[in-house]
Design a protein around this nucleic acid. Sequence first.
DNA 1: TGCTTTATGTGCGCTACCGTACCGACTGCG
DNA 2: CGCAGTCGGTACGGTAGCGCACATAAAGCA
Lengths: 275, 275
Amino acid sequence: MIESHKLNLGQNHILDSLSVAEYQRLSPHLELVVLPLGEIIYEPGDELRYAYFPTTCIVSMLYVMESGAPAEIAMVGNDGIIGVSLFMGGGTMPNRAVVRSVGYAYRLRAQLLLQEFNRAGGVRNGTLHDMLLRYTQGLITQIAQTSVCNRHHFLDQQLCRWLLLSLDLLPSNELIITQELIANMLGVRREGITEAIGKLQKAKLIECRRGLITVLDRPGLEERACECYQVVKTEFERLHLASRYAPSASYIPIHSGGLLRNESLSSRQARMKQG
Amino acid sequence: MIESHKLNLGQNHILDSLSVAEYQRLSPHLELVVLPLGEIIYEPGDELRYAYFPTTCIVSMLYVMESGAPAEIAMVGNDGIIGVSLFMGGGTMPNRAVVRSVGYAYRLRAQLLLQEFNRAGGVRNGTLHDMLLRYTQGLITQIAQTSVCNRHHFLDQQLCRWLLLSLDLLPSNELIITQELIANMLGVRREGITEAIGKLQKAKLIECRRGLITVLDRPGLEERACECYQVVKTEFERLHLASRYAPSASYIPIHSGGLLRNESLSSRQARMKQG
DNA sequence: TGCTTTATGTGCGCTACCGTACCGACTGCG
DNA sequence: CGCAGTCGGTACGGTAGCGCACATAAAGCA
């Protein structure tokens, strides 16, 4: 699970923003790990032993209801960190973090993160302390906007928002995920997603195969999405938190050829379906 | 607007938790102010000149959509602070903060808050820095749970949650608010609220007059509410953030006789209806 | 007092999404 | 290859909440 310390380094936005001194202190302790689809980073109430800085993976923060039905609170990729409760002081969270898209992440022992977080002398600009809090503020906006979107917008608009937010965390224009999982994330029926995807396909915005969605027309998606996507994206840019992959004005589609395709999609996803 | 520095002091949970040293540094700069219904504390993008520590008022964080329709993201009372963006580093937020229930709050110049926040030596336990971050984590849970609730639960359940959360921020069992405003907060039709309130009245859980809701049976409300209320409340208690008014196990109803009734309900509320 | 404003209650057709059921198609595995 | 398991498409009745249009009632004001 643990790979070279050098490979792929510097792909997480928070790590990229560290001062030289901080980076030198932390980098020896950063371990690059692969996070497989369905891996649970923490459960409600779990004390974290590590914080994770995703580079190519995407992790969902899910609330799992008493009924067992999950709902996505927020998604975290190479723009952020998993383990906010560590430095925010709560220690744990009442939700679950689960890997939604295979990929790499750097992990750092909780204690070391805290040590660096609390180090901060007088000046804080550009420090880890500063970046982590700014990221957390961005997270608040993402969560809040999800709430608004849940209430007010049509499912196909929500799907556009969700696709775009996911896409911004990925290096290609392909999303490896089943409709059932999307339904879980958005907290709706699987059939509803089928219908919404059908609409987007008819509009030539996306193209689908089993467990794979290819975005054909990103600007078209943005146009069709509700305001929520832009609100979140603009706020992240303002906070200097935008993902390394997030395109701003112009957009040139990339074809990865599915480099990080999941080996065993089905078996892994079984774990994610329920509590 | 500015009242005695001593009157009513020590009713905000964050201020109450400060160390003696911190309290001594800050208290000379805390101004007790009345926040009237409908007062806008900040608009999206506004740089804050003051942070506010509510004691008896309730402030809503609203997102105002492009259509002009508002939706409540979170509510803040004597358990928290208005002005999270100050210490989180973003400076501004993409939402609006508006007073939903008249009352008092302590205000503190932004610069002084930041100064104290950044002071923190090695030990942080029990400091303002610590409390503010822990509160912010609680806020995240509240926002996230609102999102889940929006998606999954019936309107009358959501109303129960909302009533209970509001009640926990108030010293009596009376809520001074119109159905129209509740509808705005929950992001639904006014008629929907009328219907939901009707159900709760039939169940003898509440009693209503124009612009006034009296809670008759709190345990009944809790039973009828969805899990979301308990999740938020439990998390706030775990983080030592519970409002001074929030009852835990046992509950004895209080009759204030409507001490802080709004003088001109209607005119004020006109401002809140739209963008 | 009577008039105006504002809050609340009610009815009715509409629709986005739900719950359920079922079927075909793709994929991975022996 | 053929089978089993999973994924995706479709259909259909049900319903929570919407949009609209009024009616009623309570509070404020002159």
